[in-house]
Amino acid sequence: MDRHIVPGIEAKHAAQAHREDLKIQDEYGCRCMTYWVDEERGSAFCLIDAPDEEAVKKMHDQAHGLIPHEIVQVNSNVVEAFLGRVTDPEGYYDPNEPNLKIFNDPAFRIILVSQTKDSRLLKNDLGVRKSEKLLALYHEIMRQQLHENQGREVELKGERFIASFVSVTQAMACAAGIQKGLHVAGELIDLRVGLNAGMPVTQDKSIFGDVIRMAEYLCCTGASNQIVMASIINEIYKDDGKNNLADESAFKSVSPTNENVLQLMFDVLEGRHMDSQFAISDFCLSTGMSKSKLYRQSTTLLGMSPNELIRDYRLKKALSFLKTDRNIAQTTFDVGFSSPSYFTKCFQERFGISPLAYKKLG
Score class of each variant (00 low, 15 high):
T257K: 11
S286E: 15
N244F: 05
L302R: 03
V254F: 01
N234Y: 13
S249P: 00
V261I: 15
Y295P: 00
N260D: 12
V228L: 09
K317A: 06
C284W: 07
S231Y: 14
K252I: 06
T287M: 10
M229W: 14
T332P: 06
Q263S: 14
S255W: 05
S224Y: 10
L269N: 04
S224H: 08
K252M: 10
S292P: 01
N243M: 13
M274Q: 14
K291S: 13
Q263N: 14
D334Q: 13
D239F: 09
L302S: 11
K291W: 04
S286I: 00
V254I: 15
T299W: 01
Q226S: 13
V261Q: 05
M274P: 00
I227K: 07
V254K: 05
S320I: 04
S320C: 05
A318V: 03
M274A: 11
G288W: 04
E235S: 09
A329S: 14
G271I: 00
G288T: 06
L309F: 09
F266K: 14
S253I: 09
F321S: 09
T299K: 12
F283T: 13
I227S: 06
T331E: 12
T324E: 13
G241D: 12
D247H: 02
A246D: 06
T300Y: 06
Q277D: 15
A230Y: 08
Q226L: 02
I236Q: 09
